[in-house]
Every structure is written in C-alpha cells, then in structure tokens.
Design a protein around this nucleic acid. Structure first.
Length: 392
DNA sequence: TAGGCCATCTGGTCCT
DNA sequence: AGGACCAGATGGCCTA
C-alpha cells in the first residue's frame, strides 16, 4: 500500500517541515536551500488544513475522545467502551495477562497437535494463526489506543508546524487561515520568490512578485494575496495572460503557470470563517466589477502579522470600503517584511516598487514592531540578508 | 443539500 | 515489538 522507497522522501520532508516550523529558530540560510528551491517544480503535497484552533486538546480531552470511542471529529463512530484509566490498568496487568495468554496458547497447541496426530486434520505449518483471546484482544485494543494517541499528537504537531508556516508566509491572519494546501503552495512560491530575489540581486517588480506568490494558488487565495498587496487581481492576472504566462519587469526568470487551482467554491473564501466575518467578495478575479480602480477588502486582522510579503518592507495597507456592513471595521491584513519593517533603514532607502505604482515609505501604524511578533526571526540569516539587500 | 475542509480512527508498511 | 508515517474511511462543521 503506502510506504516503500517512494514514501521515504515524503516522510523525511514532513518530518523536516514539522521540525523546521515548530522551531522557527531552525529556519535555514536561504542559500543552502536555493538549489532545492530551484527544483521545486514538483507537485504540491496533498495536505489539508486545520480550520479550527489546531485542535489543542488537552490530555483530558484526548482521553475523553478515546472514551467516546469515535473521537471528537468523527472517526467513523467506531465505538469503544473503555477508558484510558482502564488502559493504564491494562499496562500494569500486562504481565499477568501474558502468563494467562501463554497458558491458553499452550493449551491450544496441545489440542492442535493432538488433533493432528489423531489424523483429524493436518498439522499446522508456518506461523501459527493466533486465536484472538480475550487477553490478546485487550492488549490489541490498548495498543490501538496508544497508536491513536500518538497519531493525534503527530497530527497536532503537524498542524502546529503548519500554523508556524502560516505565520511566516504572506497573508497571515489568526482568524482567516489559509487552508493547509494553500499554505504549502504559498510557502513554496514564497521561498521561490525570495530565492529569486537573492539570486538576481534585483528588486522585483511587485506585479511579478505577486504573480510568483500566486502561482498555482486557487483563485480565492490568489485574490487574497493580491488584495494584501493592494493589487487588483484583475490587473496582474490580466497581465499574466497578455504576456503569455511570462512575467515582465525585473524578474524575467519568473515563469507563470498558465493555470491556477480551480476554486471549487466560487466567490468563497478559502476559509469559511473569512466569509462569516463579512469578508466581501473581493476574491473574484474580476473584482472590482466593471474593472474600476484597484480595490480590495481585507479580512479583519486579529492576530500577529505575517512577516514578509511586501517586498519593500514598508507596505501601508489602506482599508477599503467594500460596502459590507463591516466595511467600517478596521480591517488589517498586513504584509510586510519584518526585518525591514522594524529596521532602522534610513529615509529614502525603502524599496520603490515597480509597475503597481505602489511605493514604500508608508509604514502602517497598525503594524506592530516585528520583534513584538516574531522575535525568533530577528537574527535569522535570511532576514538579515534580505535586510541588507534592501537597504544597500 | 452539496461540497470543501477538517479531526480522528484505523490498518498497513517500513524502520529501528 | 513498537513507533512513525501514510492513506482510506467516516462524520462533523460550515457556507452557498
């Protein structure tokens, strides 16, 4: 079924991802991974996202989940009537059960051999098929419980790592999370974009930058990223089409996939909570209807901000009225370079963006100092390097 | 109600 | 043998 040589790299990748983003201090020097990023044309991994708070079940809840026998989220209603307390008892009594079991097996063996000698049936060969005695069933059940608990923990760790990843890719919001798959896609594109910046040593055109970020993303996420960068998604998608899937501007090596993952839920946000928060349908690629001035609507920001998105590190995101009842809310869906936004860059050193017409210099006052949010990044090689790059 | 996303359980496989 | 990982199955939640 699964596993095998093909799964090995996958296992290692997931393990590495988990460890990396569980411990952001381990974030690597981008140079060491640039080669890897260059080869990152492979298909996106098939991962899902945790929509709720990454299921931070306490131990009690976990135990309760096992007690319920079906697990909190479904689990197919496989009922099991016991408790983990019972499971602990099982552990203590394991030796005792073992003895009982051996005795039972001995009896079974004796019976089998007697039957074989008697000619009733041929003597068994090969590994003996063990009968599921009560003790064995109990132990099996305990093993299964332990395995379930480990699996839960593993998935929680994975979700936690994904959450950390969400925080370091563009468009982070506590309340409106990208789905797992979109987070991974965006992260891949983001790494690619950063590596391109380092490799080319050029300031990319913001349109190219957004296009790179949005490569392969679903339409809603594409619009989200564009919205975060105050770009009309129509403008850059249109350019993308007009230029035959090739970016223009300062980053000619940025190629564009001629497709995006289809959004199976048209006009819906990748995250249901976003819709429920009055996020108006700016996700439509044709927004604004009729092709008006670039406008977007940001979902409400309620958490720490994502680090880099704006390539100038000084993005100021204005709040646009989308006509929704919540239009007057103080939406803030910010994207910025942490190391840059909080840097001591001298005036005039902020990056001047290209085709979009956006220009740096207007630091959002809603953006807290970066070290308040992601202190673990303050001295990572990547950010220092980028910081130096953008301020030379 | 359909569809997307999710958490969890489960059994299989591989590895130590 | 036991743990890690994986993918399938299942049911819950949410929105259109």
């Amino acid at each position: 079924m699964t596993g095998g040589a093909g799964s090995e790299s996958r296992c290692r990748s997931v393990a590495m991802l988990t460890r990396l983003f569980s411990e952001p201090s381990l974030l690597p020097d981008v140079h060491k991974y640039s080669a890897w990023v260059d080869d990152s044309g492979s298909e996106d991994s098939k991962t899902k996202e945790d929509e709720h708070d990454p299921c931070r079940l306490g131990l009690d809840e976990i135990e309760d989940a096992d007690l319920r026998g079906g697990g909190g989220g479904g689990g197919g209603g496989r009922g099991r009537a016991h408790s983990d307390t019972a499971a602990e008892d099982d552990d203590e009594d394991e030796a005792e059960e073992e003895e009982e079991e051996e005795e039972e097996e001995d009896e079974e063996d004796a019976a089998d051999n007697a039957a074989a000698v008697g000619g009733d049936r041929p003597k068994k060969r090969g590994p003996k098929k063990r009968e599921m005695t009560q003790a064995r069933a109990e132990r099996s059940r305990v093993r299964r419980q332990k395995a379930n608990a480990r699996e839960r923990t593993r998935m929680h760790d994975l979700n936690s790592a994904l959450d950390n990843l969400r925080k370091v890719v563009p468009c982070y919001s506590k309340t409106q999370k990208l789905s797992k798959i979109e987070t991974l896609r965006l992260a891949k594109n983001y790494i690619w974009a950063l590596s391109e910046i380092l490799r080319n040593g050029k300031r990319p055109d913001v349109v190219s930058y957004v296009q790179t970020l949005c490569r392969g993303l679903s339409q809603p996420t594409t619009n989200l990223v564009a919205g975060c960068l105050q770009l009309s998604s129509r403008s850059f998608l249109g350019e993308q089409c007009q230029e035959g899937g090739r970016f223009h501007g300062a980053s000619p090596s940025f190629s564009v996939h001629p497709y995006s993952y289809p959004c199976s839920r048209p006009h819906s946000h990748p995250h249901p909570h976003l819709r429920s928060h009055g996020y108006c349908p700016a996700y439509d690629a044709t927004y604004p209807p009729g092709g008006g001035s670039p406008e977007y609507n940001s979902p409400e920001y309620e958490g720490t901000l994502s680090p880099p998105v704006g390539i100038n590190g000084n993005f100021s995101l204005k709040q646009q009225d989308c006509g929704s009842p919540d239009a007057d809310r103080s939406y803030h869906y910010s994207m910025h370079y942490p190391a840059l936004a909080g840097s001591r860059a001298p005036p005039g050193h902020s990056l001047v963006l290209g085709a979009s017409g956006l220009r740096g210099g207007g630091h959002s006052e809603n953006v807290p100092p970066y070290h308040d949010m992601h202190a673990h990044h303050d001295r990572t090689p990547v950010y220092e390097e980028l910081n130096a790059f953008f301020h030379n």
